[in-house]
């Protein structure tokens, strides 16, 4: 077979293979990991402006304390420029007060999205913060997004607190 004919044949087969595999992947018959590409979600939420020379900006479930003068960019890049990453507005402020991200104690995620709230442990105390919408990646409706609230001294208490809590009160 001539070289040009061989190239045409292989190209046509490759194109067919791509189409066929996209059909299989889309239909769910075979999930091809190769095609699992990320898709950006979420919104930039301004939590508080000008707290001791920092702006508090949230993306997905994290609050970023960004020093004035640092442009909003990729969180990994911002971190190299003196930005602190926190789980709540109050934690971000504690970091700003301490002038470092590595503070003790820190919010430690215990349970993600328990009835619409993330439960965190801070030392021996448990706090809740409104979780984010799984698909939209923005905070679930709440009066004070990214606000931490004391929920009890153990996980059971915290869960009970969430169960009793009316969302509108939060």
């Amino acid at each position: 077979m001539e070289s040009s004919n061989r190239i045409i044949l292989i190209t046509v087969i490759s194109w067919l293979l791509i189409i066929a595999s996209l059909f299989l992947h889309t239909s769910g018959i075979i999930k091809i990991p190769f095609f699992n590409l990320k898709q950006s979600k979420g919104a930039i939420v301004v939590v508080e402006e000008n707290y001791k020379g920092f702006n508090l900006v949230a993306i997905k479930e994290e609050v970023y304390a960004i020093p004035h003068g640092i442009p909003l960019s990729n969180p990994r890049r911002m971190k190299r420029q003196g930005t602190f990453e926190a789980h709540s507005k109050e934690e971000a402020k504690r970091m700003i007060d301490a002038n470092k991200e590595d503070i003790e104690p820190r919010l430690y995620l215990v349970e993600n999205n328990f009835r619409g709230f993330n439960i965190y442990r801070l030392g021996n105390r448990y706090y809740i913060v409104r979780a984010m919408h799984k698909e939209h990646a923005v905070p679930l409706p709440t009066k004070y997004p990214y606000h931490e609230r004391y929920a009890g001294s153990n996980i059971e208490n915290a869960r009970g607190f969430v169960t009793k809590l009316k969302e509108s009160e939060f």
């Binding site: 590409l37 898709q39 930039i44 969180p75 990646a137």
Partner: peptide, 16 residues
């Protein structure tokens, strides 16, 4: 690279 794969927040419309 398609922006939707690396940008850290959701962008809307065809600019994804």
């Amino acid at each position: 690279f398609p922006p939707t794969e690396w940008i850290h927040y959701g962008i809307n419309g065809h600019f994804t």
